[in-house]
Nucleic acid binder design. Structure first.
Lengths: 304, 304
DNA sequence: TTATCTGTTGCGTTAAACGCACATAAGCCT
DNA sequence: AGGCTTATGTGCGTTTAACGCAACAGATAA
């Protein structure tokens, strides 16, 4: 698409302003006082505006200035323009003061459910006019959104390396065995994959990063886990552990509320691939982030 | 009333424009080509705009430029501003091309009725988007309107001298005796006040300039006319002459349609004050008139 | 990695706006 | 009518903003 190539005529803002001040002050001298410039300058600018527009704006040859019809139009236009500008600047002020704006946060599957609610609640209440968009998706989806500037921030588990992605912060987030308090494994300090294989398991589907990490561990140890149940809902997985005496494998964060309440326990797994996983906050390399996003970023950092 | 003294911040138009062209062209270099300036200038203006607004507008450090949220707002604002400016300029264009505008014409009492309709019709049809305001009033009212710029032009009978009023054109417009074709005076070439005193008369009220001129003539000749009927409606006066065999005294113009049709006759009066009256087109001294007004002025000149 | 785009910065140049001083014109007052 | 006051318009030298050129640095693609 080719844009117009017409040379823009652009009515000089300063000249319009001078005209307006002249009318408001009632004379060029008064206007020049208010503007802090010499009267000659005012006179010239108004004259040049008339030349630009090709029409007389003030009726000359009299003591008090009086606008012509074109002058009235010009002043009306200027006033309108000013009010629009003020609206624009005030909008900008909101943005500068972090009061407005949109932050898009992409979350990996590890966070599906009601995670982060404390952080997000703090953010939305501290900046009530900021809109927060949360996009959920698999780890790869998160990366794509961040790489293509469709999301400002991403949080996901064990993100693969990508030249366009910068890992801002990574914190250990081992995948643990989640069981109910009454479960036989509940008293153990550590479990092996072999231990787990003896119990009924609930696991996420194969396209989930968690499941891929589990697969890596299975490969390495030669032990293969067969889930009794597969679900992309973390809640279902957790319910399976809590009410059906089963076991599920999740990052600690995903069940932190229940472990703190005592209804579930999270047991470390003695496998490197699972115990050394990290949750990562990612953004696009060299991307300039709006201030609001930085705030959320810091909140998330503190949370992890 | 004191106006605001806040120093206006005024977002630079050129910088906004450069920003806009940059995003439209996709790069600063392309924009500089289109704008016909060096790329360095574009870069600087955009940087200065960012400084003025206190916010980054484009995300730096990448090949293709991308706007920040503030940048989006700025471009949106600029586009809006441009469309407003175009509307303004096009309005102005109308004005310049005489297609639009308002002309205020003040008419004295001698023109009440349906006079000038040919001229006014020609004017309104030739400049269909020009608005024509006609204010009717006594001669003094006409002069006040013109003196105080509430009317562009005035037409009245025998206007008194006034330093603020300039007589643009004056044409003789004697006050004549108006009678029906069958009236005894209808055959005379000239009548005196004494002649008139013998018939039933219809005259305008005393606050009309016509009546004041008649009074001057009465004073001078020592003959006093007693009207059978007094009315501020020229139509009533003329009807009195036409259907009730009476006489009325009016400027020739006021009954020109009827005299041409032959239903009324206008007889000169042998009195200096009445036979030498003039109708005058007046305007304020040194007033600059819009082009549209000049056109009407010339049309009126031609008519008289 | 190199080649070639991009945006940025330093510095001398051009053009717009300015201030000062003075000329000119309009309105007011006697 | 004529002087007096006050306001706008003009010539000219000065200041400031925008510019062009050239060199540099960062980023993408081969």
């Amino acid at each position: 698409m080719r844009l117009k190539t017409t040379t823009r005529v652009s009515v000089s803002a300063i000249r319009l302003r001078y005209l307006y001040e002249v009318v408001a002050a009632g004379s060029m001298r008064a206007a020049s006082d208010k503007l802090g410039v010499a009267p000659s300058s005012v006179s010239r600018q108004v004259a040049q505006l008339e030349e630009e527009l090709g029409l007389p704006l003030i009726e000359k040859g009299r003591r008090e200035i009086a606008l012509t019809e074109a002058g009235e139009m010009a002043v009306r236009y200027y006033r309108h323009q000013i009010s629009e500008e003020e609206a624009f600047l005030s909008e900008l002020e909101d943005l500068r003061g972090l009061r407005k704006g949109t932050v898009v946060l992409a979350l990996g599957e590890g966070f599906v459910g009601q995670p982060l609610s404390a952080v997000l609640h703090e953010f939305t209440s501290r900046y009530p006019d900021m809109r927060l968009k949360i996009r959920l998706g698999g780890t790869n989806e998160v990366l794509r959104l961040v790489a293509e500037d469709e999301a400002h921030l991403g949080m996901a588990l064990e993100t693969p390396v990508d030249p366009k992605i910068r890992v801002w912060k990574a914190v250990p987030q081992p995948i643990k065995a989640i069981v109910s308090a009454k479960h036989p494994l509940g008293r153990k300090k550590k479990v092996t994959l072999t231990d787990l294989a003896r119990y009924r398991l609930a696991l996420p589907p194969r396209n989930f990063r968690i499941r891929q990490l589990i697969a890596q561990a299975e490969q390495k140890e030669g032990v293969f886990l067969t889930p009794a149940i597969t679900s992309n809902s973390l809640l279902i997985l957790k319910n399976f552990a809590q009410f059906e005496e089963g076991v599920t494998l999740l990052p600690e964060l995903a069940s932190i509320a229940e472990t703190q309440a005592g209804t579930l326990r999270s047991i470390p797994i003695s496998n490197e691939a699972l115990s050394q996983t990290q949750v990562q906050i990612v953004l696009r390399v060299r991307r300039q982030l709006p201030a609001g996003v930085m705030r959320l970023l810091h909140l998330l950092e503190g949370y992890l």
